[in-house]
Computed example of a mutant assay.
Amino acid sequence: MAQSPTPNYISIGKIAGTHGLKGEVVLKHALGQRTALKDLKTLFIKDKTGSYLPWFLETAKIKSETETFVKLESLDTVEGARSIVQKEVWLAAADFEKHAAKNSVISFIGYIISDNGKELGQIEEIIEQPHQVLCRLNVEGKEVLIPLHEETLQKVDAKAKIVYVSLPDGLLDIYLS
């Protein structure tokens, strides 16, 4: 879900559905904290060509730990709001820094994964699943998925931006051989 294909934008979630009759939508996010997106002016949704289109925020209010009610400029009807349901939502990198909780898993994007003292690479995407979190990175030019859960995660050094793991024997061989 959380992805950084360019250094400029970071995926924070998606539009989960509509709310009310005036074009409000529910943003399901992975920012790691309840948020009303205070001072955020713009969020982005990718169009079919891969361009990031800006959507201007009119209002936002907290629904839950992972959801925020959002009213976007120019969406004034339920029908209009439906057009962006299930679309992925992106923030500019600077806005992401302001709104993501420092201890949230999504904030690990850009951190280095270190397996028993060997640096593997930089986290490019966080994929949250019901029972674990996967980090996508490139190792020796190949895409690798590293699971983060109680058995693999050793510690996180936020200052140095390093996630220390101890991977099961043979896990990397699956990707690199």
Rank of each mutant, 00 (worst) to 15 (best):
M1T: 13
M1L: 12
M1G: 14
M1E: 10
A2T: 11
A2G: 15
Q3N: 14
S4A: 14
P5M: 08
P7I: 10
Y9V: 03
S11A: 15
S11C: 14
G13I: 04
G13C: 05
I15P: 01
A16F: 06
A16H: 05
H19R: 13
H19T: 05
G20E: 03
L21F: 08
L21N: 12
K22G: 00
K22T: 09
G23V: 05
V26C: 03
L27H: 02
L27K: 01
H29Q: 06
H29V: 06
A30R: 10
A30S: 10
L31A: 04
Q33F: 02
A36I: 03
A36P: 08
K38I: 07
D39Q: 14
D39P: 04
D39Y: 10
K41S: 11
L43Q: 07
L43R: 08
I45P: 04
D47W: 10
K48W: 11
K48L: 13
S51K: 15
L53H: 01
P54M: 03
W55M: 12
T59P: 00
A60G: 08
K61S: 14
S64G: 03
E65P: 00
E67L: 00
F69T: 07
F69H: 13
F69M: 08
V70G: 02
L72S: 06
E73T: 05
E73L: 06
L75E: 01
L75S: 01
D76Y: 10
T77N: 02
E79P: 00
E79R: 09
G80V: 00
A81W: 00
R82M: 09
S83H: 03
I84K: 01
V85I: 07
E88T: 15
E88I: 12
V89I: 11
A92Y: 12
A93K: 13
E97T: 12
H99N: 11
K102H: 11
K102G: 09
N103V: 10
N103D: 15
S107R: 15
F108W: 14
F108R: 14
G110H: 10
I113H: 07
I113C: 12
L120K: 07
Q122S: 12
Q122F: 04
Q122C: 06
E124S: 13
I127P: 00
Q129T: 07
Q132R: 14
C135S: 13
R136T: 08
R136I: 06
L137V: 07
N138T: 14
N138D: 09
K142G: 04
L145G: 07
I146H: 14
H149Y: 15
T152L: 05
L153F: 05
L153K: 11
V156F: 03
V156W: 02
A158S: 13
A158R: 15
K159Q: 14
K159I: 11
A160G: 01
P168Q: 09
P168T: 06
L172W: 02
I174C: 01
Y175E: 09
S177Q: 12
